[in-house]
Computed example of a mutant assay.
Amino acid sequence: MRFLPLILLFVLCSCYEKARDCKPYQIGEFYSEVTIDGVVFKSTFKRDKNIQVEKYDKKIDSSNLRWINDCEVVFKTINPKNMAERKDIHLKILTTTDSSYTYEYSYVGETKKQQGTAYIMN
């Protein structure tokens, strides 16, 4: 009988999965925050199914999008200005709410990942 609470706890925890409805975030206008080494980087972007235009630090970058599935996308900069911009970026939506999503991203083929949060702009 003393194992019953442990079994019940295991069953309840194993059934829990964080919400992840990614389709609403494939198109729209968003505000994003990423913290790297204690510094917060903010940007806004507008995304349709195939293109994303991002404004960051008074600069505008445009990328072609290739959706792998509803929650993962690869960005390819349209007019890269340096070698770093020529690298594709893989983004994976980890969790969603009704007004935001948490994501991780990295250069394609690299293991170091960063995380951020994007919010729907109204």
Rank of each mutant, 00 (worst) to 15 (best):
V39Y: 11
V39I: 15
V39R: 10
V40E: 14
F41T: 01
K42M: 09
K42P: 00
K42H: 06
K42Q: 12
K42A: 06
K42C: 01
S43R: 13
S43T: 04
T44P: 00
F45S: 03
F45M: 02
K46I: 08
K46E: 01
K46N: 06
K46H: 01
K46L: 00
K46D: 00
R47C: 00
R47V: 04
R47K: 12
R47T: 08
R47Y: 03
D48K: 09
D48E: 11
D48H: 14
K49Y: 05
K49V: 11
K49G: 02
K49T: 14
N50G: 08
N50S: 14
N50A: 10
N50M: 09
I51A: 07
Q52D: 04
Q52Y: 10
Q52L: 10
E54I: 13
E54Q: 13
K55A: 12
K55Y: 03
Y56C: 02
Y56A: 07
Y56M: 09
Y56V: 08
Y56P: 01
Y56N: 13
Y56F: 14
D57G: 02
D57P: 11
D57V: 04
K58P: 01
K59V: 06
K59W: 01
K59S: 12
I60V: 10
I60D: 04
I60K: 12
I60Y: 07
D61E: 03
D61W: 03
D61Q: 00
S62I: 01
S63N: 12
S63F: 13
S63W: 05
N64K: 15
N64Q: 11
N64H: 15
N64P: 06
N64M: 04
N64T: 15
L65T: 09
R66P: 00
R66K: 15
W67S: 10
W67D: 09
W67N: 08
W67L: 13
W67P: 05
W67F: 11
W67Y: 05
N69F: 07
N69R: 00
N69A: 09
N69Q: 04
N69E: 13
N69W: 06
N69Y: 05
D70H: 02
D70V: 02
D70Y: 03
D70C: 07
C71N: 08
C71E: 03
E72Q: 15
E72S: 15
E72D: 07
E72I: 11
